[in-house]
């Protein structure tokens, strides 16, 4: 039985196609503003890579902040549940999950394979990928390099502001004062780790603790968090796709509960063409993104 999970995050769109036991295809590509069209594009690519068609996929679960914009999905599930399922599948001993996404960060508590509590950051970019992106941009370094660079610091700079816009200025001031980029980045990571830690702390941290999402790829952040929390974190081999994986797992679970007839009816309801604002001549706007 083929199933798929698609996770449209604020920054990256991820997809997992599975035959029910193993992953056949997984992809991650930047999210653009036009989710519907994007969903088709990544799905088309993923299907092509394992020589499948939409009709052969029994059940598709969409998750992530753009989950409602996936016309061909059979069901929408929040990324919180999907991350939990993905991590629980990979690491059954994990009790606490930290997900650092592009524009939010979350903590999830798991007990006996069930989600018992969760928390999301509150309308502030601190502790999210967006924060690091802005800082990397301002400092003129590559986003994927900042973690490693921060680990080379011996004397982390003091960054007090956790507002991205003001931290940006602070970083520039420190830079102008002669602090090295490494030290500034270390300061930035420290400040964010402390912010994330106090958010997760509300859930009562229990071992094992896993970190997922784009933030898990930032080694500097992972180390800074480990230092705060006091023990090592579990990092999945491909932290970006845990949400999509969880979605695929849910898809399989749901599909097995349905009769072939029900599955067929579901599939018939899928919309396989993106009718969107951008395709609608009546709306007549010239925005190109």
């Amino acid at each position: 039985m083929f199933v798929a999970g698609i996770d449209i995050g604020s920054t990256i769109t991820k997809i997992v196609i599975s035959n029910g036991t193993e992953i056949l295809a997984s992809m991650a590509t930047p999210t653009s503003a036009e989710h519907r069209r994007l969903a088709f594009r990544v799905m088309d690519d993923a299907l092509a890579s394992c020589f499948l068609s939409y009709n052969e996929i029994e059940y598709i679960v969409a998750t992530g902040y753009g989950r409602i914009n996936v016309p061909f999905a059979d069901q929408q599930v929040t990324e919180i549940t999907c991350h939990m399922r993905g991590i629980n599948f990979l690491f059954p001993n994990v009790r606490t999950i930290i997900d650092i996404g592009g524009q939010d960060s979350k903590g999830i508590k798991v007990k006996d394979g069930k989600q018992v509590d969760f928390i999301m950051n509150d309308k502030c970019a601190a502790g999210t990928g967006r924060f690091f992106e802005q800082i990397a941009d301002v400092l003129g370094v590559k986003l994927e390099d900042i973690g490693e660079m921060s680990l080379r610091s011996k004397n982390p700079a003091s960054i007090s502001s956790l507002c991205t816009v003001f931290a940006e200025q602070e970083a520039l001031l420190r830079l102008s004062e002669g602090a090295s980029i490494e030290d500034i980045l270390a300061g930035i990571h420290k400040a964010n780790a402390s912010r994330i830690h106090s958010m997760i702390g509300k859930l009562k941290i229990e071992q094992d603790v896993a970190i997922t999402g784009g933030g898990a790829k930032n080694l500097g952040l992972v180390r800074a968090l480990e230092q705060r929390i006091g023990f090592p974190l579990v990092v999945p081999p491909e932290p970006l796709i845990t949400g999509a994986l969880g979605a695929a797992l849910i898809a399989r679970e749901t599909a097995t509960k349905l009769t072939p007839q029900q599955l067929k009816e579901k599939k018939a309801k899928r919309r396989l063409e993106a009718v969107t604002f951008f395709d609608d001549p009546k709306r007549g706007s010239e925005i190109v993104l």
Partner: peptide, 20 residues
Amino acid sequence: NCAVFLETEAISRVAEGTPR
């Protein structure tokens, strides 16, 4: 009240089809 999220909101509005 956050510049960063205002950006997100603007992006969402674009995605929803709100004219520029």
